[in-house]
Design a protein around this nucleic acid. Structure first.
Lengths: 126, 126
DNA sequence: GGCCTGTATCGACAAATGTCGAGACAAGGT
DNA sequence: ACCTTGTCTCGACATTTGTCGATACAGGCC
């Protein structure tokens, strides 16, 4: 638990550094921030994980249990669990155990932050 | 050249499939599209490459030559070249040789596409 | 209590990735 | 023509990553 706290990224905190509405086209991303942001992008850089995020986000109520997710892949349970752990470590999803099942939901602010960084905003080149 | 054409991803083409303004929260991303999108996100999933994109995009005129980029990293020339190749293969940047130097510029539509996919759009959960 | 189901961790292994040095190719200056 | 400079390609290597089976933990049901 304490260890996990260290690994967990506070993507929301990056807003203070990168700045909201300050995309990567306006000024170079500082090296330290790039590490955090890149970890989030890397987490999305796998087809399975990208689909997992999409499945969770688009599921009814905005949450899905692992049992719902495993059915969509030809992968073993441990593998799905591993990918979910990576996404959790990147701060993109959160998991909560309710009774027998564990429910995952996306972290909207984290996705929004990444979306903002990529937004060109038509303010530089053209 | 012909080989490169195969590797090159037409991220713009994904708009026809994923749909513009159809983010990953509205409906699950199809498995095939996830492969293409994930490749782009993976390309951004490295601190060096993320900074490279940012450096290129924020450079004067929207383009930068390799000589401008290598100075910002403690990496060898071949390594920078490798990262640029990955970004090119993902369709995120384009390179053009003009005389002695090779100039790179970002592909705005590709970045915009990724940004759109990540945009939550407040239309589902809440 | 004992069992069964759902999920996570552990250890192992093949494949992919990031990095480098050496060398090749391209373009310009002498 | 030659050499210098800028960039890319090619092998090689250590590290990381994705995957699995086996196993452990958590919680409900008999």
């Amino acid at each position: 638990m304490s260890k996990q706290g260290q690994e967990l990224i506070e993507l929301t905190q990056l807003s203070a550094v990168v700045g909201c509405g300050s995309p990567l086209v306006r000024e170079p991303i500082p090296a330290e921030d790039a590490v955090e942001l890149a970890r989030a992008f890397k987490a999305l850089g796998d087809p399975v994980r990208l689909r997992l995020v999409s499945l969770i986000a688009s599921h009814d109520g905005g949450e899905a249990c692992v049992c719902d997710l495993t059915a969509d892949f030809d992968l073993s349970g441990p593998t799905i669990s591993h990918h979910l752990k990576v996404l959790r470590g990147a701060g993109l999803i959160t998991g909560e155990r309710r009774g027998t099942w564990v429910y995952y939901r996306v972290e909207p602010s984290a996705l929004a932050r990444l979306s903002d960084v990529l937004a060109m905003e038509q303010g530089v080149g053209a």
